[in-house]
């Protein structure tokens, strides 16, 4: 669930190879053998299965080439599924980005005591990992039909939440639940960017006569923008792949793409493996696009933060 985005230190990558010395066996020719177990594992258990799905997506059950499976992704219920997934991921990522950014701003730049920041950061590390089934249970106890908040709203404020059209087991309920791991994730990945806003920039702007608003408009916001957009995409991908939380909340009635694929694999729906492959390929394609864009934006942001 978490994305470890703190920049890996590139130190230790030594440019010049050490000279061979007496007593040390000659180096070179067979060194690559050391990477074989890892590469074999990756090929057999990551690349091969994915390639299998990708190839299968372009084949008929009999093995002939076809674009039919991909075309079938446009069929009404599958397209609706993708559209639902995309909307849910967009909504969840958008809310997560905005709230996470606000929270990160408050603790990093808001002038609060240091312990608030360490408490929030520590909690975020836990909450961004607290996903899946238990998270769903906690929200059912909160906003389910007899959840604590639902009951308090009804008894104390005379608001019948479920009569307003809200349901924990629908679109906005899911988005609200996702927020529990999205907001902390946003906080964790955007914090380095906020820290990268140098105090000297604000001071330089002030000494040049700019107001705080002008500083944010001309410098702060533009410098943050690539990072924020990148994190938004990361959150989008994170929401798009979420499956266990949805199942625990809705029992596979809410047909986002992962659920559809889950049911395909289970054989609960009309079973056509090649269409299943196409579904999987569609998911991978979306993940690749969002993650690549994320990396590009992050590289760009880092260039500025030197």
């Amino acid at each position: 669930m978490t994305a470890m985005t703190e920049a890996g230190t590139a130190a230790g990558l030594r440019e010049s190879a050490p000279q061979p010395r007496a007593g040390v066996p000659a180096r070179g020719r067979w060194d690559w053998l050391g990477a074989v177990p890892f590469l074999a594992f990756v090929i057999i258990f990551m690349l091969a299965p994915v390639s299998y799905l990708i190839i299968g997506a372009f084949q008929t059950p009999k093995g002939a080439f076809t674009l039919g499976n991909i075309a079938d992704l446009a069929s009404p219920n599958i397209a609706a599924s993708y559209w639902l997934s995309i909307r849910l991921s967009l909504a969840s990522a958008l809310i997560g980005t905005v709230t996470g950014l606000m929270l990160a701003w408050a603790v990093v730049l808001g002038g609060l005591p240091g312990w608030v920041r360490s408490a929030v950061t520590t909690f975020s590390g836990v909450a961004s990992n607290f996903a899946g089934v238990p998270l769903a249970f906690a929200f059912i106890a909160t906003l389910g039909r007899i959840g604590l908040v639902t009951v308090i709203l009804r008894k104390v404020f005379h608001i019948n939440l479920y009569a307003t059209g809200f349901s924990l087991f629908s679109f906005w309920g899911l988005a609200l639940t996702y927020l529990y791991f999205q907001m902390p994730l946003m906080l964790l990945v955007i914090t380095p960017a906020l820290e990268g806003l140098k105090r000297e920039w604000e001071e330089a702007a002030a000494s040049l006569g700019a107001s705080r608003l002008q500083y944010w408009r001309f410098v702060g916001a533009p410098v943050l923008a690539p990072s924020v957009l990148g994190c938004f995409l990361l959150l989008f991908a994170n929401a798009f792949g979420t499956l266990a939380t949805v199942i625990a909340l809705t029992g596979s009635n809410f047909s986002v793409v992962p659920i559809l694929l889950f049911q395909q694999i289970r054989g609960n729906v009309l079973y056509n493996p090649n269409l299943g492959y196409a579904l999987a390929v569609g998911m991978i394609a979306i993940m690749i696009v969002t993650n690549t864009a994320y990396l590009v934006l992050r590289t760009r942001a880092e260039r500025w933060q030197k």
Partner: peptide, 30 residues
């Protein structure tokens, strides 16, 4: 920002998102 004082920092503190010309123009633009 009301003192009209120029400041140069040890770490340059140029605005990374602005070109050289935009950096120099910053105070005038403000």
């Amino acid at each position: 920002n009301q003192r009209n004082i120029g400041m140069v920092f040890q770490a340059y503190a140029l605005f990374p998102n602005l070109s050289v010309a935009e950096n120099v123009a910053f105070g005038l633009r403000a």
